[in-house]
Design a protein around this nucleic acid. Structure first.
Length: 262
DNA sequence: ATGGTTGAAAGTCAA
């Protein structure tokens, strides 16, 4: 069995329905994981997605903020959603495929502007969320699992347009990178995107605030696909669909893809 | 050091 999975921070699934269906039509990933749906789960335009073959949906939502959904052409069952730092936010949901593979879809808190938990509660919540992920993976070692999502951290020097300039910018500070690495190590997660594309600059997000995002190209790789070691070597053909950042009324994130032969 | 844009939702908060 072979399937392609994609992850995309959609920044309002209702406003972005036209480009979600465009992605479904043009790229047709078997499984599409969305973050920042920004609505209740029952407000997701499920019928439009079902009409394109995405018959299964597992989601967690809340009014106005956050919200995660797994849309699938393959049968999936709800495998729960956890409130990792006790924030009461819809930032995680899991689903299980018939072959026993578990898919985790995460939206890690962005963390505000000041990278100091004493001055900025949201930064502390981001670190706490990552610490809870680490503790969860330590306690329950994941197996036959894929983790995707907007992790809101660009861990490598070549995951940002200017490493030195971003060392004090939330998303690329050393303490965030350390916390992300601890969560990754606790589950022995393999960074599938970087396994397939080991070298070179790689971005999945470009700010709305840059006047010409494409020419300026001040991007960051905030969106990730990980897999446990028992299935990581079944993955291939990772890519980031940069073109989607230029579609009409775009999200500020581009979708990230990987294919698994299992 | 600052401001720049977008979305939800109706004044701001979050990103």
């Amino acid at each position: 069995m072979s399937f392609t999975i994609a992850t995309w921070n959609i920044n309002s699934v209702r406003l972005r329905e036209p480009i979600v269906t465009r992605l479904m039509g043009e790229e047709a990933p078997d499984i599409l994981c969305l973050q920042e749906c920004k609505c209740l789960a029952e407000q997701i335009p499920t019928e439009a997605f079902q009409a394109l073959g995405y018959r299964w949906q597992v989601a967690r939502g809340q009014k106005s903020y956050n919200g995660v959904a797994i849309l699938s052409k393959l049968p999936i069952s709800d495998a729960g959603g956890e409130d990792f730092a006790g924030l009461g936010h819809a930032r995680h949901v899991a689903a299980r495929l018939d072959n026993g593979v578990t898919i985790h879809n995460f939206y890690v808190p962005a963390g505000g502007d000041i990278p100091d938990r004493d001055q900025n509660v949201k930064f502390g919540q981001k670190l706490d969320f990552l610490a809870h992920m680490r503790d969860g993976f330590s306690k329950d070692k994941p197996a036959r699992a894929i983790l995707v999502g907007d992790l809101n951290i660009a861990p490598r020097e070549d995951d940002v347009w200017n490493h030195k300039a971003l060392l004090k910018i939330v998303s690329h500070t050393p303490i965030e990178v350390e916390h992300l690495a601890a969560a990754q190590d606790a589950g022995a997660w393999v960074d599938v995107t970087r396994k397939d594309i080991p070298d070179g600059l790689l971005y999945s997000w470009w700010s709305y605030r840059a006047p010409d995002w494409d020419a300026a190209d001040k991007g960051r790789r905030l969106d990730h696909i990980w897999a446990t070691p028992d299935i990581a070597n079944a993955s291939h053909t990772s890519r980031i669909l940069r073109a989607a950042r230029g579609w009409d009324q775009p999200s500020d994130h581009a979708p990230v893809f990987a294919t698994f032969d299992l």
